[in-house]
Design a protein around this nucleic acid. Structure first.
Lengths: 310, 310
DNA sequence: TTATCTTACGAGAACCGTAATGATG
DNA sequence: CATCATTACGGTTCTCGTAAGATAA
């Protein structure tokens, strides 16, 4: 006799299968997923079959390949689980080995640059041995990378109602801390009829054309959530992280964007008008994963301290 | 050739191993864990060894058996991962099959009983087919069970600062909604010197003897967190969920407890005095796991509606 | 010595690749 | 008929149980 119990494999879902499931769903194709994962089409097919019988539901409809309702549900969980599986490994390595000589920081483009550079300079002076590498990307990338442990620290910015936190794409297990807040403003082309106003309500602009630039400006999704409306429609989308490019697009009349007012001061071709209703704030938050706190809290204190000094 | 890549097993941690790791850490013994899991001691030993080499760190020190620093870190993640793995399965089943004929609700003993029973009665009338099973337990059990999908809905209560949420033992992925708030009060024996006061500050009571009854009254840990102090020491601990028993303990002079003032009104042998500083609220929150929302939102709306009608 | 963890080894199951089969547009 | 998913089959690898060995109380 080799097995004491009947079946034991039927109670814990295999993350390997979860990963190929996620990949297939993302690709919309078994063959493509196989290519990306280094498997055979056959292997992927078998894995999905195994997963479906294990869970007891059809997760993908084939031809075209896409998640079923049940599959959609699983995708949410699967992404979080895979993320945390990575986080666990990273966290243990950090707790186990010696503290790393390099601190990776992920930043969104508008995460209070002055504040950050001040804090970094201070950190550099106090701990010359520590190499600090800062990388600028989109918010989602920063969040998941911090959650996964690829970045020891993250600084993200966004627009929200005064007491609401920034949405974190529910990566779980990471804590956020407010380091700076300022007023968000609508950026208009210099000659725009509303450019002379002192303040604007989002309602005034519901029918305007917007540029959705989630990686540089306030994502429209944030605005919709904060303003509790769904009227704001994007005319074009800009996926880069370059502020001058975005401002050029606004100046050229392709649409409006929301940015922290401090970031637009003195830029040519555009005018920033503060948003009066609804009451919103542009906020910069410091993110840390768990054990990273050891090196991180250090910078966290520095940031909040320097903020008070401003 | 059978394998396309060198090694592939080295990047995703096996949850099976995680579970035995958690069990061993909890038991403090390989043999006991083996018994609980239905394995051999040998198998457990091999699994831990595999996990340790996979992650690349010693997770347990032996004789006596206990988690190392790295192991402590892993335990946090492992618990959350295992929970969510269960949640994923439950959520998919729910989304896949027909809506269940029975709604399991988990309650903490002081979760606004009147409110709940009103809402339940309404639910019962409108959907006679739905069987509602309510179970009273401690807060942690409710939270994890809702997270795991064992309960479709949870109602927990606790004490916190007015704008802080109740601590959720970070189970992740579950959303909370405030359904009721009232003022917390200190419960004193009827003849107590302070029983005639109109209001009390927690500072006045720092040196008093407290009963820590986390499953019936406000857990002392909540109070310490909310009051930002660490002076409140427990003289005895009561792990039951029975309110009369707790009140009897208070009446007998074994210590004080904090309860919502409404719950103590008219009870013999004890007096409740409202807490004036720091400003605290006793709050009841409705928890739901993800897809459970389908049946749950229903009750959620009903609860908030009936609250406004009160 | 005794309770407990570790190592050695072998049987059975699991997994993936090759290849053939089936379905769909 | 071409593309893509499924099924069949076989070899390698993995996993766990039995049993013997090591180690601390």
């Amino acid at each position: 006799m080799t097995r004491a119990r009947s079946i034991r494999n039927t109670d814990l879902v295999d993350p390997q299968l979860l990963r190929t499931f996620v990949t297939v769903a993302r690709c919309g194709s078994f063959s493509e997923a196989a290519r990306q994962l280094g498997y055979t089409q056959s292997a992927v097919s078998q894995q999905i079959a195994t997963l479906e019988t294990d869970i007891g539901a059809v997760l993908l409809h084939r031809r075209p390949v896409g998640p079923t309702t049940a599959g959609e549900r699983l995708l949410d969980h699967a992404a979080a689980i895979l993320l945390r599986l990575d986080a666990a490994r990273a966290d243990v390595r950090l707790a186990s080995g010696e503290p790393p000589g390099v601190l990776q920081i992920g930043l969104t483009p508008l995460a209070s640059p002055a504040l950050v550079s001040t804090a970094l300079a201070g950190l550099r002076r106090d701990r010359p041995g520590l190499e600090v590498v800062a990388t600028v990307t989109g918010r989602e990338t920063v969040v998941t990378s911090v959650a996964r442990g690829d970045f020891g620290l993250g600084l993200i910015d966004g627009v929200a109602a005064p007491n609401d936190p920034l949405p974190l794409y529910d990566a779980g297990h990471l804590s956020a801390e407010v380091v700076a807040e300022d007023a968000p403003a609508v950026v208009l082309p210099a000659g725009h009829p509303l450019a002379s106003r002192k303040g604007l309500g989002l309602d005034d602009l519901a029918d305007a054309r917007w540029i959705d630039a989630p990686d540089v400006a306030a994502p429209l999704a944030d605005l919709r959530a904060a303003a509790d409306t769904d009227r704001l429609r994007a005319s074009i989308r800009y996926d880069g992280t370059d502020l001058p490019t975005l401002l050029a697009l606004v100046a050229a009349g392709h649409g409006l964007a929301v940015l922290p007012s401090t970031a637009v001061a003195g830029m040519a071709g555009v005018t920033a008008v503060q948003i009066t209703t609804p009451r919103l704030v542009h906020r910069t938050e410091l993110l840390h994963g768990l054990q990273a706190a050891r090196a991180a809290v250090d910078l966290g204190e520095r940031l909040t301290a320097s903020q008070e000094g401003e």
